[in-house]
Design a protein around this nucleic acid. Structure first.
Length: 554
RNA sequence: GCCCUCGUAGCUCAUCUGGAUAGAGCACCAGAUUCCUAAUCUGGGGGUAACAGGUUCGAGUCCUGUCGAGGGCACCA
């Protein structure tokens, strides 16, 4: 809708220029907004104020010139008014909105989709939790946000792939293996000390028990060195299966699970290090290999290969991100926990060292979830074993409510997730407000069928009986769905959809309480039913982008 | 100590990247159902946007400083 208005203004500018009314040495960017207040019309632009300086005229005069050129040749415009210091307020004729509403029904499931992203190849990497334990609530936020971003970018016309990076290399894998080995011995009645550094959670016992069931005591009299590879691999596989199940229960799927170990096996890490060496971006010092990251805006140089000969996590991460770009992705979006923010300049410096443009890489920092239980903070450390798993929360609060809870806030602010509150308030959760609207509309359709009123095709419908002001408020809101999707995708801000839906559905609930859709007036009923269908499509498409269900009955 | 993110109603958060009188939900108070789902609707109180400066036609939004919260400053991942 805004695109159309922007075009109108653009052509008015052209006419003003051709007429010599305005100089327009530089064509300004046209910003079209929806005024906060209904009385200011349907669209507004502060263009005249922006132009005033370069035109060396008063904002009001510029607004007057624009106004005259806008009004002269557009049949969709009902009025153009100048307000305040020079706002141009446009009011459109009803037909403008009704014509567009008809298209909503035609597009159905596709309504809100666009090619704004122009098929740009995007790689979304998210969750990527270390495979050392089940996913907790904090991971859930990343999962929900990442999954929704995938759906959102797809709908907005980007070519999206999603990926989970498995950190299956490093000391943590040995710790995982040793923890399992220790539990194994313990369960076999062999006394041993369970180190405080080991993973404390009960899931380790479950894995150990599983090993006993399958392999009995065959490892009992062996040394740690002999058994560690087996325990490490077994525990990794088991934890990873658990993570995959948790995510699939959360309705989150990945196009690819990318193993860090695989990077090493394919020599990709070695390749990128030698390439960097060739380009003279690395040097040797104190027996270690360093990247000259300080030359690329990082605060200091970083170690790639330790004295011990082991490669750092950073080192393989460089290879991983290089690989992402090599696979042809034009936009690399990583969702990281907020605690990794110090790592951002480091990664950016590495990409710059490799000669890539900084703009291809974007990190979204997902702020922490403070888990609370009745106002008291709950500690969430995998190692200590004190954490609420994502699976538990979904079980308690429900899939839809859990997803919605994570998605209704801007992801760069802290999120307080009070378990007691979430459980207790589940009936008041805004997700039900939205789902209820959908169920109500479905109920209207059941009633309409009873009364023999059919939903008409776009081609046959006569929307002229829609005259109510509340109807137009709703229609206008429905029609901003597409631009909400586009904006949300472009800014990678998922919460906008949740707010949009709450707002949209609010207009419906108010309308519903004051108006009957199915009545004796056949023409009016048909028109209203058609509107309800468009509304239902919008709600359904909005919820679907969030990965939340749209029930027919509640 | 240095760096990053944040600070908006009692609580949880919006405010369309600088626009018009800062808005929702929860909680609290008072009301609404002979009729398509009351998980709904109507009305009410509640604000120095942490604080102090600056930039301009115009600032919650941009800049500087102060205070407060969280996080980061490894040859860990």
């Amino acid at each position: 809708m805004k695109h159309f208005v922007r075009k109108l203004i653009n052509s008015a500018l052209d006419r003003a220029k051709n007429n010599g009314d305005l100089e327009l040495s530089v064509m300004p960017e046209i910003v079209v907004e929806k005024p906060k207040e209904e009385k200011f019309g349907d669209f507004s632009t502060s263009l005249a104020m922006g132009l005033a300086k370069s035109e060396r005229r008063k904002p009001y005069e510029v607004a007057e010139i624009l106004s005259s050129h806008l009004q002269s040749s557009e049949e969709n415009i009902a009025s153009v008014k100048i307000a305040g210091p020079g706002f141009l307020n446009l009011t459109m004729k009803p037909i403008f909105f009704l014509e567009r509403l008809v298209k909503v029904a035609e597009q159905g499931d596709q309504y809100g989709s666009s090619n704004a992203g122009q098929g740009k190849k995007v790689l979304l990497e998210f969750v990527s939790a270390n495979p050392t334990g089940p996913l907790h609530v904090g991971h859930g936020r990343g999962a929900a946000v990442g999954d929704m971003l995938g759906r959102l970018l797809d709908k907005a016309g980007y070519d999206v792939s999603t990926e989970y990076y498995i950190n299956d290399v490093g000391n943590q894998m040995n710790t995982l293996g040793r923890s399992t080995w220790a539990r194994y011995l313990e369960l076999q009645g062999k006394v041993n000390e369970f180190s405080a550094d080991y993973y404390q959670g009960d899931y380790i016992k479950d894995i150990a028990r599983d090993i006993i069931n399958k392999h009995g005591n065959e490892f009992l009299n062996k040394t740690e060195d002999q058994v560690l590879p087996f325990f490490r691999e077994y525990a990794l596989g088991s934890v990873l299966d658990g993570i995959k199940k948790d995510l699939s229960d959360f309705d989150v799927s990945f196009d690819r699970w990318f193993s860090e170990k695989n990077l090493y096996d394919q020599k990709l890490v070695d390749t990128s290090v030698s390439w960097l060496r060739q380009e003279k971006h690395v040097y040797d010092k104190d027996g270690a290999v360093w990247l000259k990251s300080s030359k690329f805006n990082d605060e200091k140089d970083r170690v790639l290969i330790k004295q011990s000969g082991e490669k750092t996590y950073f080192c393989s991460d460089i290879a991983y991100h290089k690989n992402k770009i090599d696979r042809g992705f034009e936009w690399i979006v990583d969702l990281w926990g907020a605690d990794h923010h110090g790592y951002v300049p480091r990664m950016k410096s590495a990409l710059k060292a490799m000669g890539y443009d900084e703009s291809v890489f974007k990190v979204m920092l997902i702020q922490f979830v403070s888990l609370k239980r009745g106002g008291e903070k709950v500690s969430m450390s995998t190692r200590s074993g004190e954490f609420e798993t994502l699976a538990d929360v979904i079980k308690d609060v429900g899939l839809d409510a859990t997803r919605f809870f994570f998605l209704m806030r801007s992801s760069d602010t802290h999120l307080d997730f009070d378990l007691e509150l979430a459980k207790k308030e589940s009936a008041d959760n805004p997700v039900f407000y939205i789902q209820y609207a959908h169920a109500r509309i479905c109920s209207i359709f059941r009633k309409a069928t009873e009364n023999g009123i059919k939903l008409l095709d776009s081609a046959d419908i006569d929307l002229s009986p829609l005259k109510n002001e509340e109807e137009f408020i709703m229609i206008k809101k429905i029609l901003t769905f597409g631009e909400t999707i586009e904006k949300s995708a472009e800014l990678l801000e998922v919460h906008r959809i949740a707010f949009y839906l709450q707002d949209l559905v609010g207009t419906f609930h108010r309308y519903y309480s004051r108006n009957r859709i199915v009545s004796d007036d056949h023409a009016l009923s048909s028109a209203r039913l058609f509107l309800m269908n468009c509304l239902r499509i919008t709600i359904r498409n909005g919820l679907s982008v969030m990965g939340v269900s749209a029930p027919d009955r509640m």
